[in-house]
Amino acid sequence: MNDMTKLTAKDFATDQEVRWCPGCGDYAILKAVQRTMPDLGADPSRTVFISGIGCSSRFPYYMETYGFHTIHGRAPAIATGVKLANPDLDVWIITGDGDALSIGGNHTMHLLRRNLDCQILLFNNEIYGLTKGQYSPTSRVGTRSPSTPFGSVDRPVRPCAYALGSGARFVARAIDVSKYLPDVLKAAHAHKGAAFVEIFQNCIVYNDDVFAPFTAKENSGRQLWLKAGEPMLFDNGSKGLTLDREALNLKVVEVADGDWQSAGVIVHDPANKAVAHMLIDMPIGSFPMALGVIYDDPRPTFESAVLAQNEEAAAGKNADLQALVSKGQTWEVEKEPRKA
Rank of each mutant, 00 (worst) to 15 (best):
S139A: 11
R140I: 03
V141Y: 10
G142S: 11
T143I: 03
R144I: 14
S145F: 14
P146W: 15
S147A: 15
S147V: 12
S147P: 04
T148A: 15
T148E: 14
S152A: 15
V153W: 06
R155L: 15
R155T: 14
R155G: 03
P156L: 13
V157R: 05
V157W: 08
V157Q: 00
R158H: 11
R158F: 09
P159M: 08
P159S: 08
C160I: 07
C160V: 02
C160H: 05
A161E: 12
A163W: 06
L164Y: 10
G165Y: 06
G165P: 02
S166F: 05
G167R: 08
A168E: 10
F170H: 13
F170C: 03
F170I: 00
F170E: 00
V171L: 04
R173L: 04
A174W: 06
A174D: 10
V177H: 12
S178R: 01
S178E: 11
S178C: 10
K179R: 10
Y180N: 09
L181P: 03
V184N: 09
K186N: 02
K186P: 01
A187G: 01
A188V: 07
H189P: 00
H189E: 03
H189K: 14
A190N: 01
A190E: 07
K192I: 02
G193I: 09
A194W: 05
A195T: 05
F196A: 07
F196L: 08
V197C: 09
V197K: 04
V197S: 11
V197I: 14
E198C: 08
E198T: 01
F200K: 09
Q201L: 08
N202A: 04
N202R: 08
C203S: 11
I204A: 13
V205M: 08
N207L: 04
N207P: 01
D208Q: 13
D208H: 15
D209C: 04
D209S: 13
F211P: 03
F211R: 01
P213A: 10
T215P: 06
K217S: 12
E218C: 02
E218N: 12
N219H: 13
S220A: 14
